[in-house]
């Protein structure tokens, strides 16, 4: 997890024929967190997907050092399989061991036998956080991480992110809800729209 960094230079993003933002440059070093804010459709998710390398930038350069973990509105867990099996699949892919402590903290232990399709939005979000923890990635990209979470789970997500940054990780958070994190900077994407 040490040595994670994100460097963005003069980034521009286009969706269809609309230029969402341009001239965005920023640096994130190990242990830093940044929250991206802006109205709906301004390009918060697009920015995260560009940083993840899942979408090409329209202009500019992105350089991310370290493994990248992404949590967005799609949990990437097979709906037909039980939560335990779906998480076990990602543990195999990530080569991670059992992390019962994480499951207990996220309140997922009692749900392991439940097929993913029966889980609520918030439960799926917590399961996605468990998948993210197992990945042990240096860079966390969180797209609306608090959507569907109750107050207790939201506080837990904030605490997990704080621990991640304290351990030398980077968090880039797109959220229009307040996200309590010590030492977190805020980036308003509206400063970079045309």
């Amino acid at each position: 997890m040490q040595g994670a960094s994100i460097a963005i230079d003069d980034l521009a993003c286009r969706r269809g024929d609309r230029l969402l933002f341009r001239g965005l440059s920023l640096r994130l070093r190990a242990g830093e967190a940044l929250r991206v804010v802006g109205r709906n459709g301004i390009g918060k998710s697009s920015l995260l997907r560009i940083v993840a390398g899942l979408a090409p930038p329209f202009a500019g350069k992105v350089n991310a050092e370290g493994a990248i973990g992404l949590v967005d509105e799609r949990p990437a867990l097979d709906p037909a399989r039980t939560l335990g099996e779906a998480l076990a699949f990602w543990r195999q892919i990530d080569g991670a061991g059992e992390r019962n402590g994480d499951l207990g903290r996220l309140g997922l232990e009692a749900l392991l036998d439940v097929p993913v399709r029966y889980l609520s939005t918030g439960q799926k979000k917590r399961a996605a956080l468990a998948r993210l923890l197992g990945q042990e990635a240096g860079i966390w990209l969180l797209d609306e991480p608090l959507n569907g979470l109750d107050t207790h789970a939201a506080a837990l997500a904030e605490a997990l992110t704080a621990e991640h940054c304290a351990a030398g990780g980077i968090a880039l958070i797109a959220s229009h809800q307040p996200f309590a994190l010590p030492g977190m900077a805020t980036l308003a994407l509206s400063d970079y729209t045309t």
Binding site: L54, A67, D72, R74
Partner: peptide, 14 residues
């Protein structure tokens, strides 16, 4: 289904 559920994105990240 894998495209819709984001599995391909997660594999690409790994």
């Amino acid at each position: 289904p894998d495209l819709e559920m984001g599995q391909f994105d997660q594999w690409a990240l790994r």
